[in-house]
Design a protein around this nucleic acid. Structure first.
Lengths: 118, 118
DNA sequence: CAGGATATATCCAAAAAGGATGCATCCACT
DNA sequence: AGTGGATGCATCCTTTTTGGATATATCCTG
């Protein structure tokens, strides 16, 4: 196992809201409010990020170095845009792998249809 | 969309602990304590179900009809064994499908390696 | 320039989780 | 048979986390 994976796994599982934020940023830079819109649309309304949760998470992720604020060329002065850091990306990858494993188990137990070549 | 799916989605996302319990029971009948062991081993210790969480969830799932107690032939009188109800299985399937979609998005955004024929 | 939507931020009550405690039963060992 | 440790269930209390109300400033449209 590569060095550094151990402490990475200690962070898992992520709060659902945290993973959704990282997932939104994995597609590119975004400002907070647009993250919440992206999450809501990507999950067809199943997951919502109310402001308390959203900005609390963002603040903490900045502190922890999972994301970083970018100097964007956005003209809207209210917006603060963020991007994933290398560390944030690794964490998102680890969580994605964890969820993939869960899905694999779910399929094994016939909660999901078998998939060709899967 | 098949009837009844709408109210099903309203239950999602499940608490991680809830999904793990359903996932453990999808493999067959189990008693509470063994569910917690199964979850811990399946997730390599990443997910733990402390007693407060475990028995609280079980109690609520019984009330909600997601699981049912079975008259098992177990000789240990302390044990209470449970199985998924049809409804519980449907809920687990819905949550598994939701997670699968998340994993798909994560792969699309290159957080997971591309998969042949996937 | 008025009004509504966008965007961030904070705060507090409510909900959820963790884990300590208690107690009964089971099992291994002597 | 008795003892000690592990198993198993359950509840309680504290802490943590969450949701959503409130506030404020900026932006956009008519």
């Amino acid at each position: 196992m590569p060095r550094g994976d151990a402490d990475l796994k200690a962070l898992l599982p992520l709060a659902a809201s945290a993973f959704h934020i990282l997932l939104a940023l994995a597609a590119g830079e975004r400002h907070g409010y647009s993250i919440s819109k992206e999450v809501e649309s990507a999950t067809e309304g199943m997951v919502k990020l109310p402001p308390g949760t959203l900005y609390r998470q963002i603040k903490q992720m900045l502190v922890d170095g999972w994301i970083a604020e970018t100097a964007s060329d956005d003209e809207d002065q209210r917006r603060r845009t963020y991007k994933l850091t290398d560390r944030g990306r690794k964490i998102a990858q680890a969580e994605a792998a964890r969820l993939e494993e869960l899905v694999r188990i779910a399929r094994e137990r016939r909660l999901l249809p078998a998939v060709a070549f899967g």
